[in-house]
Design a protein around this nucleic acid. Sequence first.
DNA 1: GTCCACAGATAACATGGGTTATGTGATTTA
DNA 2: TAAATCACATAACCCATGTTATCTGTGGAC
Lengths: 245, 245
Amino acid sequence: MSGNESCIVRHFKHYGPLSESDTKLLQALEKEPISGTSGQTLWEEGDKAGEICTIKSGWAYSYRNIDDGTRQVLDVFLPGDIVGLREFAFKERMSGIKLLTDSVICRFPHNHLIDIFRDSTKLTTIFFSISARQQTLLTERLVNLGRRNAFEKTAHLVYELYMRLKRTNPELGNSFELPLSQQIIADALGLSAVHVSRTFSELREENMICRERNHVTLLDIERLESVIGFSKAYLQEQDYLSYVS
Amino acid sequence: MSGNESCIVRHFKHYGPLSESDTKLLQALEKEPISGTSGQTLWEEGDKAGEICTIKSGWAYSYRNIDDGTRQVLDVFLPGDIVGLREFAFKERMSGIKLLTDSVICRFPHNHLIDIFRDSTKLTTIFFSISARQQTLLTERLVNLGRRNAFEKTAHLVYELYMRLKRTNPELGNSFELPLSQQIIADALGLSAVHVSRTFSELREENMICRERNHVTLLDIERLESVIGFSKAYLQEQDYLSYVS
DNA sequence: GTCCACAGATAACATGGGTTATGTGATTTA
DNA sequence: TAAATCACATAACCCATGTTATCTGTGGAC
């Protein structure tokens, strides 16, 4: 397990070194991995909520269906991400989850999370940081939906995913697989699929982003950053673990 | 202190009964209250982040300034709310905070939060629930910005605030003080102030919401709920405290 | 290899909401 | 009391994005 380190452990180590016992506690998060196929529904809005999941491999997204037949995509989840944290306080799922690729998922009941709160201040602090970080991503998306036009929205979405991939894969170049259809991108950005198509054409004409099939290349990262008003602030993460241990 | 129960303790008791010692730990959150006046800036984007705040009394809002001179309002905070939780994982503030009314605020350093993680599984669970609940509110706003028109957006904002007030003030009628200018509402909904004005005119014509000065009256709550596709799901909160204690 | 389903591109047209401008009443300042 | 400021209402005009429709290319099923 040490050579082929678990995805969740790698994710947590991003926040600082872990002790033997913390690593063991954490590895319990990845017991009984189950695999799913692209398009599969993990759960739907209104289902009973009693567990969180870690994504060992693959991509997924969460969404809310709207009465008028449209839907809003709320998050896109990448390998190593934790899914379902925000329903910790609720009895029902507030949003559905579907897989974007074939994936491996590990389920973990809320009660075990509380056991971790009791047993490890360090892991608790990290879980709390992860929840805070998810909030920060959501507020960033709020800005995206509220105050940017289609061009900026689309650039931002691609760039956000790029940065998140790079966080766990520092060696990532300027090009990656993006298993999102234009319809899903539209549902994430509050746009129509037609306009997303127009916008990607424009991004290519401007030599900023080239998307073909499920593969994107960032052609001019500096200009991307200036278009979306990127600030490096939300990379400045805190390190409390020295205080904790 | 027991007759005039602290706001934060009342907020936490919403999640279940607290022991003597937990109540004491919690009351430390409201030491050294400082008062501020309407319009005052508590902190700005980029300031050093090292504490959370509880709002003992008054209203506030958080916002991000956008390069083009506009801004996005991210949250509106009510008495009893906790502010700044999402920067727990970061060194800098991701958004500014301003007071909407004269208020009383209590500051609480992040280190103390970690002390609570170590000392009380119950309070930790509640803090985690609050963070999760804040995430849920954010996703609800994401839906609002992404997939609703101006009429629905405005109805939703007013209704959300109404429900949140009612959560801590169950006796609240169908009318309350709303210290938000149309400009701030516009910045929260991704609209222009002019269109917010148009929309409130429409809401009044439809006999759904009447807003005059800083006072709103909900004229037809049922129709409001149907317009925004309200589901009671996000009131179905979980109760883990029996498991914890 | 043929057929089918689906993702995507593009075009023509419609519209919700932005922008700019002007007016009004309420509140504050002098 | 006069002047200045502010929050809001309303109207005219415009544009970004939605809607509907058609066409193309690709990959899967058989």
